[in-house]
Amino acid sequence: MITIPNSKFQISNLILSKEPVTRVLLLLLLLTLAVLGMSLSLGDYPVPPADLVRAVLGLPTLDPESHFVVVTLRLPRVLISWLVGVGLAIAGTILQGLTRNPLADPGIVGVNAGAALAAVTLIVLFPTIPTMYLPFAAFGGAFIVGCLIYLLAGTGEKSPLRLVLVGVALAAIMGALTTLMLTFGQITDVTRAMVWLAGSVAGKSWEQVWQLLPWIVVFVPFALLLTRELDTLQLGDLVAKGLGSRVTWQRSKLLLVSVALAGSSVAIAGTIGFVGLMAPHLARRLVGSIHKNLLPVAASTGGLLVAAADFLGRTLFSPTELPCGLMTAALGAPYFIYLLYQRRQR
Rank of each mutant, 00 (worst) to 15 (best):
R192W: 04
E157H: 11
A142P: 04
V195K: 09
C147F: 12
I149P: 02
G140L: 15
V168R: 00
G110E: 00
L122K: 06
I149L: 10
F136H: 10
G199V: 02
V120R: 04
Q208L: 06
A193I: 05
A116L: 01
V190Y: 08
P102D: 01
V111N: 08
L151F: 12
A198W: 01
F143K: 07
V124A: 09
L165D: 02
A193W: 03
T179K: 13
L151A: 15
P135N: 10
G175Y: 07
E207A: 15
F136K: 03
I144P: 14
L180D: 11
I129F: 15
V120L: 06
G154S: 09
T183H: 10
V168N: 00
T128G: 10
A202K: 06
T155N: 14
L148H: 06
L163T: 13
V120P: 03
V168L: 10
Q211V: 00
W196Y: 05
K204R: 08
L134K: 11
G141R: 03
L177S: 11
T128L: 11
I108M: 00
F143H: 10
V195F: 11
S205N: 07
L170K: 05
L177C: 12
M181H: 07
L152V: 07
T121W: 14
L165H: 00
G140I: 11
L197N: 07
T183S: 12
A119E: 02
A137F: 08
L212W: 00
A119P: 00
G167S: 07
A169V: 08
S159P: 02
L122A: 14
A138D: 06
L134N: 11
T183E: 13
M174C: 13
L182V: 03
Y133L: 15
L134I: 06
V190E: 00
M132D: 15
F139M: 02
A138E: 04
T131E: 09
P160I: 04
F136M: 11
Q186T: 13
T183M: 09
A116I: 04
P130R: 15
A113Q: 07
L151R: 15
A113G: 05
A169S: 10
W210Y: 09
L152Q: 03
V164I: 11
V164A: 05
T121Q: 15
G156V: 06
A193F: 01
A104E: 01
L165S: 03
A172V: 08
L182P: 00
V168D: 02
G110P: 00
E157S: 15
L103G: 07
